[in-house]
């Protein structure tokens, strides 16, 4: 078990991290992600207020839509990355565990009349069901609630009598859903989903933090605190697509200046041979000069590569550039490559 933002979470279950990764890619992985926080935003001023705080165009979302968005500081740094669901009369915002306090402070300091904000994290449990057979499993236990949803939308259904919000979203590069429900039903629903997987002959296994990290890494998704932080802006991180410059939002002016001036560094994915690149390892050019540092790195089970993400001099970030990563003091040859290493199945 590892301490993770105040929660004790398993790095892996007895299955083992690599096998957990493979199970999620071939069948169904079950993720206990109650550490994720949820904030409910309501009120007559909620739409305009939230839109002004996040990078994405959320006002065009219809009820049931789900969208990725960034919460930026005035300098354009990423306070948090969010998943925002629109329900009738409510914005349901999923935040990172480690950022709950920072997000709450930011929301509070920008509060206006007409906005009713409630942190519902403690009352809400969150389980992700991910993998090519996840929809079949959830459909079988929810009267077909998952298959009827298109990607990035959400609905409601009962599973084992428990009222759930089900979003066709996830953090693995696989199809699947994220399920929100009353926290006192957590053990019941977790055990039920595992048992139903077994009963239906759908291989279903609990997945720990290590595989969660390798799955999201292969799929090119960021982990806050690594690829994105309050000191990193979405332009250099490659998330300009999540910023809608046709509307106003906190951090927009800073981002426009950054776009105008160009980024000195950029996020690059680097494949390495000769060891496992890890967080904090130095990235070098061919002459041995330091050009950056890895923000995370690992063995990638599906693509069978050793790779890291690193911020490097912008000129060196272009895919196909020869670089080296210093692994335990020894430079190992590598090359920048295109992200993602594994194209999410729903984007094919």
């Amino acid at each position: 078990m590892a301490p993770f933002a105040g929660f004790d979470m398993p790095i892996q279950y007895p299955t083992g991290a690599i096998e957990e990764h493979h199970i999620t890619r071939r069948s169904v992985g079950l993720f206990d992600i109650d550490h994720m926080g949820q904030v409910s935003v309501r009120g007559s001023g909620a739409d305009e207020w939230l839109s002004g705080l996040v990078s994405s165009d959320i006002l065009s979302m219809k009820n049931g839509d789900a969208k990725y968005a960034l919460l930026l500081n005035d300098a354009g740094g990423v306070i948090d990355d969010l998943f925002i669901y629109r329900f009738p009369g409510e914005w349901f915002v999923v935040v990172n565990a480690g950022n709950r306090d920072a997000d709450a402070a930011w929301f509070a300091s920008h509060m206006v009349p007409g906005v009713d904000l409630e942190d519902v994290s403690d009352a809400t449990y969150m389980i992700a069901v991910q993998g090519p057979k996840a929809i079949s499993l959830v459909d079988a236990v929810s009267g077909g609630a998952a298959g009827g949803l298109v990607r990035f939308t959400a609905g409601t259904a009962a599973i084992a009598g428990v009222p759930c919000r089900i979003g066709r979203t996830g953090y693995t590069g696989e199809d699947g859903v994220e399920v929100f429900f009353p926290a006192d039903k957590a053990v019941e629903l977790w055990d039920f989903l595992l048992a139903e997987g077994s009963r239906l002959g759908i291989e279903t296994a609990p997945i720990g933090l290590a595989a969660r990290d390798s799955l999201r890494f292969e799929a090119g998704m960021p982990l806050h605190g690594h690829e994105i932080t309050p000191a990193i802006n979405p332009i250099e991180a490659g998330f300009k697509w999540a910023c809608d410059f046709s509307k106003d939002f906190v951090g927009k002016a800073a981002l426009e200046r950054i776009v105008q001036a160009g980024s000195a560094r950029k996020l690059a994915t680097i494949e390495v041979t000769g060891g496992v690149p890890r967080e904090g390892y130095e990235v070098q050019d061919g002459a041995g000069n330091r050009i950056g540092e890895a923000v995370c790195g690992m063995f990638c089970p599906t693509v069978h590569k050793y790779a890291c993400n690193a911020y490097v001099d912008a000129a060196m970030a272009k895919p196909g550039t020869a670089v080296a990563v210093s692994i335990r003091g020894v430079p190992k040859p590598g090359s920048t490559v295109k992200r993602p290493l594994y194209l999410p199945t729903y984007r094919r």
Partner: peptide, 8 residues
């Protein structure tokens, strides 16, 4: 150690 992923 957990799953071994590299041996030199």
């Amino acid at each position: 150690l957990g799953d071994i992923v590299y041996v030199d």
